[in-house]
Amino acid sequence: MEKLLYVTANPKGLEKSKGLQIGEAFLEAFQKERPEVEIKKMDLFTLDFPQMDADLVSARGKLAGYGYTLDQLSDAEREKIIKMHALADEFISYDYYVFVSPVWNLSSPAVLKAFLDNLFIAGKTFAHTPDGPKGLLKNKKAVHIQTRGGQYTGTPLQEMESGDRYLKIALSFLGIKVMDTLIAEGFDLNPQKVPEIIAKAKDHARLAAKELAKGISIQV
């Protein structure tokens, strides 16, 4: 059975978050097309996962390049590296990924970057080769749904946005095929048009979900 992981990075909840409302429209359309696919929701603001602190950085380095075994790590290092691998293992078990996040100060909420840090494990999600690093998560697909208060597309802000850009780079590095991003923007600039923007974004999300379910490249 195929599985889809729905990862959200917005603390406001469904009633207040425009992105989560658009995301729900995506999920409903995907489920209609592929009811057999198992879906799990993962809220990064409530998820307990390791941060890249001194213990985790030390543990990863010791295991990767200094010949340490798991038993030779400190208790704190061992606990955190085990959690890191468990999260990565769970992530690997999915076939489809949907990320939903807003733009905060030109990028994504920090919790999304912290989550992605747990996925970069040499030998598990990517490999070092003579030709450079190679992603190991093949035959998997991801899509990003991003909301923006400002207008980025077609303006100088477009080159400053780094949240969607980094997410796509990170997932591609791991070998995942990343579909076109679904962007809803201009909410803060056009408060009176918010319902219209959301409605249009939901239409795009439903189309994208159908295309992802059928294995077609998303074009919106």
Rank of each mutant, 00 (worst) to 15 (best):
G154Y: 00
A9F: 09
M52L: 09
D203N: 02
A86Q: 02
L5E: 05
L182G: 05
A208D: 01
A76N: 13
A142L: 02
A64S: 10
E38A: 15
L87N: 02
T147M: 03
H204N: 10
A29Y: 10
D48Y: 05
K193M: 04
P11V: 15
L14R: 15
E90G: 10
Q21M: 03
F99I: 06
M1K: 14
F120R: 02
E196M: 06
L171P: 01
L5H: 04
R165F: 06
L47Y: 15
I197G: 05
P35A: 10
R206A: 04
F45G: 14
S172W: 01
S172A: 07
Q31D: 13
R206E: 07
K83Q: 12
G215Y: 13
A142P: 00
I176Q: 03
D89H: 03
K214M: 08
Q31V: 09
S217R: 10
A184S: 12
S101F: 12
M160A: 11
I92G: 00
E24L: 13
Y94S: 08
G132R: 09
T125L: 01
L4Y: 06
L157D: 05
K12L: 15
G123I: 00
L136C: 03
D117R: 00
M1T: 14
R34L: 05
Q219T: 09
I22V: 11
D53M: 13
R60Q: 03
A25D: 10
V57Q: 04
K41S: 14
K177W: 00
G186C: 11
G186E: 07
S93I: 08
K32P: 04
K193F: 11
E159I: 10
K40D: 07
S74P: 11
Q158A: 12
P130I: 13
A213V: 06
H85Q: 01
K40Y: 08
K40E: 07
T125V: 03
K62S: 01
K193N: 06
A199N: 04
L87E: 00
G215R: 12
V111K: 14
K62D: 03
D53R: 14
L174F: 05
Q146I: 07
Y94R: 07
T46P: 02
L106A: 12
N118F: 01
A142C: 07
R165I: 11
G65Q: 08
Y94L: 06
K18C: 12
G186T: 14
R165G: 04
N139H: 06
D71G: 15
V220P: 12
K138H: 15
A110C: 15
R34P: 05
I22W: 09
K177F: 01
A213T: 05
K62G: 02
A59C: 06
E77M: 07
G135I: 00
K200N: 08
E159K: 07
Y94I: 08
Y97E: 06
S108R: 11
E2K: 14
K12R: 15
H85K: 02
G67C: 15
L4E: 04
E15V: 13
D71L: 15
S162T: 06
K80F: 09
Y6C: 09
V103Q: 14
G186F: 07
L136W: 00
S58D: 12
Y152D: 08
P109R: 10
R206L: 02
A201K: 09
L171Q: 02
G65Y: 12
T147S: 03
Q146F: 01
